[in-house]
Design a protein around this nucleic acid. Structure first.
Lengths: 334, 334
DNA sequence: CTGAAAGCGCTAACAG
DNA sequence: CTGTTAGCGCTTTCAG
């Protein structure tokens, strides 16, 4: 190898290449020269075998989430991960976890193939990460629903608090009856955002029954809006109005659907019904009118998760819970 | 290791684990038992070092594309790749290629870290894959623009043909003047779709000047539509019409923007102007009216690329050019 | 500061 | 059919 070319031992080459300890300046120079001359690229695999590090981190995406790959929320997270990783020597391993064969993922993770893992899952059913908890540093994106995982490291936004604030904003802008379209109740984001809305409503003694559920899709948002309209018609007069004058929707896609549905019923936003969404996804600003929403910094989430994981891998201690701030983006619908 | 537990040699264990050659049934059983008992998971790294295979394939995404990560086209491709890989022992390495430091990617690829690579790039400027051509099997998604790469393996849809067909469909449905909003002319998809439109127009002696360019974004689509309208006002009468009655748009996002722009000018689709998009992305069907478009099977593209690569890795010969069929999806706008 | 030596865990001829 | 023998290319004590 380069050792010969540089006239030193392999050990020294290794030291130089890895920027280790103190090596004679001349030796360093000689090695660098040899490296350049020979166009030497260290073999990662051999290095891994010897050092017992892989310099690989896995980004685990449950298959179901991968279906939602087009999820406008997911892409920015990945971007954040990639960005954070670009500054390190780690490499990203995208692992689409087959939910039907969870052991495949487990084995992979346990096979010494990665130094750590990032888990992005909106869902909860997943128990496949239990048991390898101590074998490998793992950072979850989003609060794990599984209580056994609660003690793990995760980074998330404070969905509940953000939802509450958004609802309070609606209440504070003069709206009387704030309804909600909640997300699935098997995902933390769905649960927490509903809880936040309820917190706000209960605090003012409002009507907690003004809630319908959707599946975080546009279609389901439209349907939920219709149900809301049907079940809560305008009070008193036989006007075309609705039994609520504001709507907090658990994500932007559903909000888009809801607004469309409302419009088909002759109700405009924000005039008739103020709407606040959640996520500030790529399409929120392009809606007509542009959607007022709670911005969830997805890219930062990815960055943050990655930085946390890297820290864990290098043996540092780190907080189990990292909360990223959200922000209400006022646009046209509220 | 398990060898002792099973009472055989390490070589035999290796044979059994890898399903190699013929091994005595009893030995096989013994090894399996031992494996199960010891919860043995072979170390991939060691295996790689010894076998000189990594069982890893890289999916290379240029940084610029990663920004367009939210590109509704990209996600399904990844899904296809993941799906195809699920049936193999390969692992997916997502490599966001820093365009500012292309050698980083080169080194990685050359460092014996992967058995092959998939390159998804809409753009062309990329020369970073030259030179490692023969060192590693590579499959491109989309026709490489770079002539030196033309000889490589790639899978693509026949953009030109599809664009021509779409335009002919418009022409065949009684439209007289079919305009186009083309994509960037530094991407194969942009170039070829424009060429296809022109083929069709020229074939009927139509007006080839009815073209504007966009950047494949909704915004740019809207702007291009406006330019089209301004530069080609209704002929003859001072009506509110336009100088064209149909529009072939090089992708769905731009089509969405264009339709919105047209509407703001009081022109409805398909009544006033028939519109055909391209991609059939996740949002095409949810537009109002739902978009008629050329469906590009992105997931299949990913699957196909992957299968091709796997074949190449195992040393098989394979066609350099694989074309996936497109299909015109008739919906509401044409 | 730097060589030498000893592996990391597995696969791959090669004999038997 | 199976054990033996060598490494894969690099890191890492351990002396010096």
């Amino acid at each position: 190898m380069v050792a010969a070319e540089a006239g030193v031992s392999r050990a020294t080459v290794s030291r130089v290449v890895n920027g280790h300890a103190s090596v004679a300046p001349e030796a360093v120079a000689a090695v660098h020269a040899a490296v350049a001359r020979l166009n030497y690229v260290p073999n990662r695999v051999a290095r891994s075998l010897a050092s017992r590090r892989t310099d690989v981190i896995a980004l685990i995406v449950p298959e179901s989430t991968s279906t939602v790959f087009a999820d406008p929320f997911f892409a920015p997270v990945v971007r954040g991960v990639a960005r954070a990783l670009a500054e390190t020597d780690f490499t990203l391993n995208l692992l689409v976890a087959s939910e039907t064969r969870p052991e495949k993922t487990r084995r992979y993770l346990l096979g010494g193939n990665v130094d750590g893992a990032l888990v992005v899952s909106h869902h909860s059913g997943d128990h496949s990460y239990l048991g390898l908890g101590d074998a490998l540093p793992i950072v979850f994106g989003g609060r794990p629903l599984n209580p056994e995982l609660e003690s793990r490291h995760y980074v998330d936004v404070d969905n509940r608090h953000a939802a509450r604030s958004a609802t309070e904003y609606l209440l504070g802008s003069g709206r009387r009856r704030v309804a909600t379209i909640a997300g699935p109740q098997d995902m933390p984001a769905g649960i927490d955002r509903l809880a936040g809305w309820r917190d706000a409503i209960e605090a003012v003694g409002g009507d907690v029954s003004l809630a319908e559920h959707g599946a975080f899709t546009q279609q389901s948002g439209a349907e939920a809006a219709i149900r809301l309209l049907d079940q809560h018609p305008a009070s008193g007069t036989g006007s075309t109005g609705a039994g609520f004058d504001a709507l907090f929707v658990a994500n932007d896609q559903m909000a888009a659907g809801a607004i469309q549905a409302l419009r088909m019923r002759g109700l405009a936003s924000p005039t008739d019904i103020a709407v606040v969404g959640f996520d500030d996804d790529a399409f929120a600003a392009t809606l007509d009118p542009p959607l007022t929403t709670v911005r969830q910094p997805a890219t930062e989430l990815g960055v943050s998760m990655t930085e946390l994981l890297v820290r864990l891998i290098s043996g540092e201690e780190a907080p189990h819970r990292t909360i990223i701030p959200t922000e209400l983006v006022r646009r046209g619908t509220a």
